[in-house]
Amino acid sequence: MRRRILQCCSAIALTAAMLGASACSAPPSETTNAERTAYTEPPLPGKAEPATSPQAAPPPANCGDPTASLRPSRDPEQSGPTIDAIRARGRLVVGLDTGSNLFSFRDPISGTIEGFDVAIAKEIAGDLLGDRERVEYRILGSADREMALQNKTVDIVAKTMTITCQRRQKVTFSTVYFQANQRILVLKGSGIDGIADLAGKRVCVVKGTTSLQHIQQYQPAASLLTVANWADCLVVLQQRQVDAISTDDSILAGLAAQDPYLVVVGATISPEPYGIGIPKGNDDLVRFVNGTLERIRNDGTWNAIYNQWLAVLGSSPGPPQPRYED
Protein backbone atom coordinates (compact mmCIF):
# COMPACT_ATOMS: atom_id res chain seq x y z
CA MET A 1 0.00 0.00 0.00
CA ARG A 2 2.81 2.37 0.90
CA ARG A 3 4.48 1.64 -2.48
CA ARG A 4 1.25 2.47 -4.32
CA ILE A 5 0.91 5.80 -2.52
CA LEU A 6 4.49 6.74 -3.42
CA GLN A 7 3.86 5.79 -7.06
CA CYS A 8 0.70 7.94 -7.17
CA CYS A 9 2.51 10.87 -5.61
CA SER A 10 5.35 10.51 -8.16
CA ALA A 11 2.83 10.48 -11.03
CA ILE A 12 1.09 13.60 -9.70
CA ALA A 13 4.39 15.41 -9.29
CA LEU A 14 5.46 14.42 -12.84
CA THR A 15 2.14 15.64 -14.29
CA ALA A 16 2.44 18.95 -12.45
CA ALA A 17 5.97 19.41 -13.71
CA MET A 18 4.91 18.73 -17.29
CA LEU A 19 2.03 21.22 -17.01
CA GLY A 20 4.37 23.81 -15.55
CA ALA A 21 6.84 23.29 -18.36
CA SER A 22 4.07 23.55 -20.91
CA ALA A 23 2.87 26.79 -19.36
CA CYS A 24 6.35 28.24 -19.35
CA SER A 25 6.93 27.30 -22.96
CA ALA A 26 3.60 28.85 -24.18
CA PRO A 27 4.07 31.92 -26.37
CA PRO A 28 3.52 35.20 -24.49
CA SER A 29 0.32 37.18 -25.04
CA GLU A 30 0.52 39.52 -28.01
CA THR A 31 -1.65 42.18 -26.28
CA THR A 32 0.51 45.22 -25.60
CA ASN A 33 0.13 47.82 -22.91
CA ALA A 34 -0.85 50.36 -25.56
CA GLU A 35 -3.70 48.12 -26.73
CA ARG A 36 -4.95 47.54 -23.20
CA THR A 37 -5.12 51.31 -22.56
CA ALA A 38 -6.38 52.40 -25.98
CA TYR A 39 -8.89 55.31 -25.78
CA THR A 40 -12.24 54.95 -27.50
CA GLU A 41 -14.01 58.25 -28.22
CA PRO A 42 -17.51 58.27 -26.73
CA PRO A 43 -20.38 58.01 -29.23
CA LEU A 44 -22.23 61.13 -30.30
CA PRO A 45 -25.82 61.65 -29.10
CA GLY A 46 -28.61 60.25 -31.24
CA LYS A 47 -29.44 62.28 -34.38
CA ALA A 48 -26.20 64.24 -34.11
CA GLU A 49 -24.68 65.08 -37.47
CA PRO A 50 -22.47 67.70 -39.14
CA ALA A 51 -24.46 70.65 -40.45
CA THR A 52 -24.44 71.03 -44.21
CA SER A 53 -23.99 74.39 -45.83
CA PRO A 54 -27.39 76.02 -46.32
CA GLN A 55 -28.58 76.46 -49.88
CA ALA A 56 -29.11 80.03 -50.96
CA ALA A 57 -32.74 81.01 -50.46
CA PRO A 58 -34.64 84.18 -51.24
CA PRO A 59 -34.97 86.48 -48.23
CA PRO A 60 -38.28 86.19 -46.38
CA ALA A 61 -40.98 88.76 -47.03
CA ASN A 62 -40.60 91.88 -44.93
CA CYS A 63 -43.24 91.75 -42.20
CA GLY A 64 -42.36 95.08 -40.65
CA ASP A 65 -41.91 94.66 -36.91
CA PRO A 66 -42.12 90.87 -36.41
CA THR A 67 -42.71 91.31 -32.67
CA ALA A 68 -45.94 93.30 -33.11
CA SER A 69 -48.99 91.19 -32.22
CA LEU A 70 -52.76 91.53 -31.86
CA ARG A 71 -54.05 93.77 -29.11
CA PRO A 72 -55.40 91.81 -26.13
CA SER A 73 -59.06 91.59 -25.26
CA ARG A 74 -60.00 93.25 -21.97
CA ASP A 75 -62.88 90.83 -21.43
CA PRO A 76 -61.92 88.09 -18.91
CA GLU A 77 -64.79 85.99 -20.24
CA GLN A 78 -63.63 86.36 -23.84
CA SER A 79 -64.83 83.57 -26.10
CA GLY A 80 -64.10 82.41 -29.62
CA PRO A 81 -63.88 79.18 -31.60
CA THR A 82 -60.39 78.22 -30.42
CA ILE A 83 -60.94 79.31 -26.82
CA ASP A 84 -64.29 77.53 -26.62
CA ALA A 85 -62.78 74.31 -27.97
CA ILE A 86 -60.00 74.38 -25.35
CA ARG A 87 -62.48 75.01 -22.55
CA ALA A 88 -64.67 72.15 -23.79
CA ARG A 89 -61.63 69.86 -23.78
CA GLY A 90 -60.72 70.98 -20.28
CA ARG A 91 -56.97 71.30 -20.75
CA LEU A 92 -54.41 73.44 -22.61
CA VAL A 93 -52.06 71.45 -24.86
CA VAL A 94 -48.60 73.02 -24.69
CA GLY A 95 -45.58 72.15 -26.83
CA LEU A 96 -42.19 72.41 -25.14
CA ASP A 97 -39.11 70.33 -24.40
CA THR A 98 -37.52 68.92 -21.26
CA GLY A 99 -33.91 69.71 -22.15
CA SER A 100 -33.80 73.48 -21.61
CA ASN A 101 -32.65 73.96 -18.03
CA LEU A 102 -34.25 76.99 -16.36
CA PHE A 103 -36.95 77.27 -19.06
CA SER A 104 -38.44 73.78 -19.36
CA PHE A 105 -36.90 70.71 -17.76
CA ARG A 106 -37.90 67.66 -15.76
CA ASP A 107 -37.08 67.89 -12.07
CA PRO A 108 -34.87 64.87 -11.29
CA ILE A 109 -36.48 64.30 -7.89
CA SER A 110 -40.18 64.96 -8.42
CA GLY A 111 -40.29 64.14 -12.14
CA THR A 112 -42.44 67.23 -12.79
CA ILE A 113 -41.79 69.58 -15.71
CA GLU A 114 -40.73 73.00 -14.46
CA GLY A 115 -39.10 76.26 -15.54
CA PHE A 116 -39.77 79.78 -16.78
CA ASP A 117 -41.66 78.73 -19.92
CA VAL A 118 -43.69 76.21 -17.94
CA ALA A 119 -44.71 78.91 -15.46
CA ILE A 120 -45.82 81.22 -18.31
CA ALA A 121 -47.91 78.41 -19.84
CA LYS A 122 -49.52 77.73 -16.47
CA GLU A 123 -50.54 81.38 -16.14
CA ILE A 124 -52.30 81.12 -19.52
CA ALA A 125 -54.04 77.90 -18.44
CA GLY A 126 -55.10 79.49 -15.15
CA ASP A 127 -56.73 82.45 -16.91
CA LEU A 128 -58.33 80.27 -19.57
CA LEU A 129 -59.49 77.29 -17.51
CA GLY A 130 -59.44 78.52 -13.93
CA ASP A 131 -56.74 76.02 -12.95
CA ARG A 132 -53.02 76.47 -13.58
CA GLU A 133 -52.46 72.70 -13.55
CA ARG A 134 -54.85 71.86 -16.38
CA VAL A 135 -52.00 71.58 -18.88
CA GLU A 136 -51.02 68.71 -21.13
CA TYR A 137 -47.42 68.80 -22.35
CA ARG A 138 -46.26 67.59 -25.74
CA ILE A 139 -42.50 67.20 -25.94
CA LEU A 140 -41.10 68.81 -29.10
CA GLY A 141 -37.68 69.25 -30.62
CA SER A 142 -36.81 72.74 -31.83
CA ALA A 143 -37.18 71.64 -35.45
CA ASP A 144 -40.71 70.33 -34.74
CA ARG A 145 -42.26 73.49 -33.29
CA GLU A 146 -43.62 75.06 -36.46
CA MET A 147 -44.99 71.76 -37.81
CA ALA A 148 -46.80 71.04 -34.53
CA LEU A 149 -48.48 74.44 -34.75
CA GLN A 150 -49.33 74.04 -38.43
CA ASN A 151 -50.85 70.61 -37.79
CA LYS A 152 -52.58 71.96 -34.65
CA THR A 153 -51.37 69.07 -32.53
CA VAL A 154 -50.70 71.68 -29.82
CA ASP A 155 -52.61 74.81 -28.80
CA ILE A 156 -49.49 76.84 -28.10
CA VAL A 157 -45.70 76.42 -28.10
CA ALA A 158 -43.84 77.82 -25.09
CA LYS A 159 -40.29 76.80 -25.95
CA THR A 160 -37.78 79.65 -26.17
CA MET A 161 -39.14 80.35 -29.66
CA THR A 162 -37.68 83.44 -31.31
CA ILE A 163 -40.09 85.63 -33.27
CA THR A 164 -38.93 86.13 -36.88
CA CYS A 165 -40.54 87.25 -40.12
CA GLN A 166 -39.69 83.87 -41.64
CA ARG A 167 -41.54 82.00 -38.90
CA ARG A 168 -44.48 84.37 -39.03
CA GLN A 169 -45.16 83.16 -42.56
CA LYS A 170 -46.15 79.82 -41.00
CA VAL A 171 -47.37 80.57 -37.45
CA THR A 172 -48.63 83.44 -35.30
CA PHE A 173 -46.96 84.85 -32.19
CA SER A 174 -47.94 86.56 -28.99
CA THR A 175 -46.17 89.69 -27.89
CA VAL A 176 -42.61 89.24 -26.63
CA TYR A 177 -42.51 87.67 -23.16
CA PHE A 178 -38.70 87.39 -22.82
CA GLN A 179 -35.76 89.08 -24.51
CA ALA A 180 -32.63 86.96 -24.96
CA ASN A 181 -29.39 87.41 -26.92
CA GLN A 182 -27.32 84.80 -28.75
CA ARG A 183 -23.81 84.29 -27.32
CA ILE A 184 -21.25 81.49 -26.88
CA LEU A 185 -20.56 78.89 -24.16
CA VAL A 186 -17.06 77.45 -23.77
CA LEU A 187 -14.75 75.78 -21.26
CA LYS A 188 -12.90 78.23 -19.04
CA GLY A 189 -9.48 79.01 -20.49
CA SER A 190 -10.45 77.84 -23.98
CA GLY A 191 -9.08 80.96 -25.67
CA ILE A 192 -12.42 81.57 -27.37
CA ASP A 193 -13.70 85.05 -26.56
CA GLY A 194 -16.15 85.74 -29.36
CA ILE A 195 -17.57 84.69 -32.70
CA ALA A 196 -14.34 85.56 -34.56
CA ASP A 197 -12.53 82.87 -32.56
CA LEU A 198 -14.92 80.17 -33.78
CA ALA A 199 -13.22 79.98 -37.19
CA GLY A 200 -11.95 76.43 -37.59
CA LYS A 201 -13.58 75.39 -34.30
CA ARG A 202 -16.27 72.81 -33.68
CA VAL A 203 -19.55 74.37 -32.55
CA CYS A 204 -22.68 72.59 -31.32
CA VAL A 205 -26.12 73.95 -32.23
CA VAL A 206 -29.64 72.51 -32.28
CA LYS A 207 -31.46 71.82 -35.51
CA GLY A 208 -34.28 74.14 -36.47
CA THR A 209 -33.01 77.13 -34.47
CA THR A 210 -32.11 80.69 -35.38
CA SER A 211 -28.80 80.02 -33.59
CA LEU A 212 -27.80 77.62 -36.37
CA GLN A 213 -28.70 80.15 -39.06
CA HIS A 214 -26.73 82.94 -37.38
CA ILE A 215 -23.52 80.92 -36.95
CA GLN A 216 -23.71 79.83 -40.58
CA GLN A 217 -24.21 83.46 -41.58
CA TYR A 218 -21.71 85.23 -39.31
CA GLN A 219 -19.01 82.57 -38.98
CA PRO A 220 -19.06 80.25 -42.02
CA ALA A 221 -15.56 78.99 -41.13
CA ALA A 222 -16.88 77.17 -38.06
CA SER A 223 -17.51 73.42 -38.20
CA LEU A 224 -21.04 72.80 -36.96
CA LEU A 225 -22.47 69.74 -35.22
CA THR A 226 -26.26 69.70 -34.99
CA VAL A 227 -28.11 67.76 -32.29
CA ALA A 228 -31.72 67.30 -31.17
CA ASN A 229 -31.64 69.39 -27.98
CA TRP A 230 -29.39 71.64 -25.91
CA ALA A 231 -28.75 68.98 -23.27
CA ASP A 232 -26.98 66.98 -26.00
CA CYS A 233 -24.80 70.01 -26.73
CA LEU A 234 -23.76 70.09 -23.09
CA VAL A 235 -22.73 66.43 -23.25
CA VAL A 236 -20.56 66.78 -26.38
CA LEU A 237 -18.88 69.91 -24.97
CA GLN A 238 -18.07 68.12 -21.71
CA GLN A 239 -16.67 65.19 -23.72
CA ARG A 240 -14.50 67.65 -25.73
CA GLN A 241 -16.19 66.60 -28.97
CA VAL A 242 -16.90 70.26 -29.72
CA ASP A 243 -15.16 73.48 -28.70
CA ALA A 244 -18.22 75.64 -28.08
CA ILE A 245 -22.00 75.92 -27.98
CA SER A 246 -23.81 78.94 -29.38
CA THR A 247 -27.39 79.91 -28.66
CA ASP A 248 -29.39 82.32 -26.50
CA ASP A 249 -27.65 83.50 -23.34
CA SER A 250 -30.67 82.42 -21.31
CA ILE A 251 -30.28 78.80 -22.48
CA LEU A 252 -26.49 78.93 -22.10
CA ALA A 253 -26.89 80.09 -18.50
CA GLY A 254 -28.98 76.99 -17.81
CA LEU A 255 -26.22 74.79 -19.25
CA ALA A 256 -23.46 76.63 -17.36
CA ALA A 257 -25.40 76.18 -14.10
CA GLN A 258 -24.82 72.44 -14.50
CA ASP A 259 -21.03 72.65 -14.90
CA PRO A 260 -18.71 75.06 -13.01
CA TYR A 261 -16.04 74.76 -15.72
CA LEU A 262 -18.20 76.47 -18.37
CA VAL A 263 -18.53 80.19 -19.05
CA VAL A 264 -20.60 82.38 -21.37
CA VAL A 265 -18.42 84.66 -23.51
CA GLY A 266 -18.55 87.20 -26.31
CA ALA A 267 -20.72 90.09 -27.33
CA THR A 268 -24.29 89.67 -28.51
CA ILE A 269 -24.46 87.88 -31.87
CA SER A 270 -28.17 88.49 -32.39
CA PRO A 271 -31.20 89.61 -30.34
CA GLU A 272 -33.67 86.78 -29.68
CA PRO A 273 -37.19 87.95 -28.70
CA TYR A 274 -39.27 85.02 -27.42
CA GLY A 275 -42.96 84.72 -28.23
CA ILE A 276 -45.68 82.14 -27.56
CA GLY A 277 -46.28 80.29 -30.84
CA ILE A 278 -49.93 79.92 -31.89
CA PRO A 279 -51.46 78.37 -35.04
CA LYS A 280 -52.37 80.80 -37.80
CA GLY A 281 -56.03 81.74 -37.81
CA ASN A 282 -56.47 81.30 -34.06
CA ASP A 283 -56.70 85.05 -33.47
CA ASP A 284 -59.05 84.69 -30.49
CA LEU A 285 -56.37 82.67 -28.71
CA VAL A 286 -53.66 85.19 -29.67
CA ARG A 287 -55.66 88.01 -28.06
CA PHE A 288 -56.34 85.89 -24.98
CA VAL A 289 -52.66 84.96 -24.53
CA ASN A 290 -51.67 88.59 -24.96
CA GLY A 291 -54.19 89.45 -22.25
CA THR A 292 -52.47 87.04 -19.86
CA LEU A 293 -49.05 88.46 -20.74
CA GLU A 294 -50.34 91.99 -20.13
CA ARG A 295 -51.68 90.94 -16.72
CA ILE A 296 -48.47 89.30 -15.53
CA ARG A 297 -46.43 92.32 -16.66
CA ASN A 298 -48.60 94.65 -14.61
CA ASP A 299 -49.34 92.67 -11.44
CA GLY A 300 -45.77 91.60 -10.64
CA THR A 301 -46.20 87.95 -11.67
CA TRP A 302 -43.61 88.20 -14.45
CA ASN A 303 -40.96 89.46 -12.04
CA ALA A 304 -41.85 86.74 -9.54
CA ILE A 305 -41.44 84.05 -12.21
CA TYR A 306 -38.13 85.59 -13.33
CA ASN A 307 -36.79 85.66 -9.78
CA GLN A 308 -37.79 82.04 -9.23
CA TRP A 309 -36.17 80.64 -12.36
CA LEU A 310 -33.78 83.13 -13.96
CA ALA A 311 -32.07 84.93 -11.07
CA VAL A 312 -28.80 83.33 -12.24
CA LEU A 313 -28.92 85.82 -15.15
CA GLY A 314 -28.85 88.75 -12.73
CA SER A 315 -31.49 91.06 -11.34
CA SER A 316 -34.76 91.22 -13.24
CA PRO A 317 -34.69 93.56 -16.25
CA GLY A 318 -38.46 93.80 -16.09
CA PRO A 319 -40.83 92.32 -18.68
CA PRO A 320 -40.45 93.38 -22.33
CA GLN A 321 -42.94 96.03 -23.33
CA PRO A 322 -45.56 94.86 -25.87
CA ARG A 323 -45.97 96.17 -29.40
CA TYR A 324 -49.31 95.86 -31.15
CA GLU A 325 -50.22 95.88 -34.82
CA ASP A 326 -53.87 96.95 -34.45
Rank of each mutant, 00 (worst) to 15 (best):
residue 287 R to G: 03
residue 79 S to M: 05
residue 124 I to W: 03
residue 88 A to G: 02
residue 317 P to R: 02
residue 258 Q to N: 07
residue 272 E to I: 07
residue 314 G to R: 02
residue 206 V to A: 07
residue 11 A to Q: 14
residue 16 A to Y: 10
residue 115 G to R: 04
residue 118 V to W: 08
residue 76 P to H: 07
residue 102 L to S: 03
residue 218 Y to K: 14
residue 48 A to E: 03
residue 66 P to W: 06
residue 299 D to M: 04
residue 168 R to E: 10
residue 126 G to M: 12
residue 143 A to E: 14
residue 316 S to E: 00
residue 34 A to F: 12
residue 7 Q to F: 10
residue 270 S to F: 14
residue 285 L to V: 01
residue 224 L to A: 11
residue 209 T to W: 03
residue 216 Q to M: 07
residue 256 A to F: 06
residue 153 T to L: 02
residue 280 K to P: 05
residue 282 N to R: 09
residue 109 I to Y: 08
residue 61 A to W: 06
residue 284 D to E: 10
residue 32 T to L: 08
residue 183 R to S: 01
residue 17 A to V: 13
residue 17 A to T: 12
residue 249 D to E: 14
residue 101 N to I: 02
residue 45 P to K: 04
residue 323 R to K: 14
residue 312 V to R: 11
residue 232 D to C: 13
residue 149 L to Y: 00
residue 171 V to A: 02
residue 257 A to E: 13
residue 247 T to H: 08
residue 11 A to W: 12
residue 246 S to Q: 09
residue 262 L to G: 05
residue 288 F to H: 00
residue 171 V to Y: 05
residue 194 G to K: 08
residue 57 A to D: 09
residue 85 A to M: 03
residue 313 L to Y: 00
residue 175 T to R: 04
residue 190 S to W: 04
residue 262 L to P: 08
residue 148 A to Q: 00
residue 168 R to C: 04
residue 103 F to T: 06
residue 182 Q to I: 02
residue 142 S to R: 13
residue 259 D to C: 12
residue 42 P to T: 14
residue 182 Q to L: 00
residue 92 L to F: 05
residue 146 E to G: 06
residue 270 S to G: 12
residue 158 A to F: 13
residue 159 K to F: 14
residue 120 I to P: 02
residue 14 L to A: 15
residue 271 P to K: 12
residue 139 I to F: 01
residue 127 D to I: 03
residue 112 T to C: 09
residue 198 L to T: 01
residue 98 T to K: 12
residue 240 R to N: 14
residue 213 Q to H: 09
residue 182 Q to R: 00
residue 250 S to L: 09
residue 165 C to E: 13
residue 195 I to N: 05
residue 318 G to L: 05
residue 68 A to K: 00
residue 230 W to M: 15
residue 248 D to L: 04
residue 223 S to K: 14
residue 134 R to L: 06
residue 134 R to P: 01
residue 150 Q to H: 07
residue 47 K to C: 09
residue 117 D to L: 01
residue 215 I to H: 04
residue 103 F to R: 07
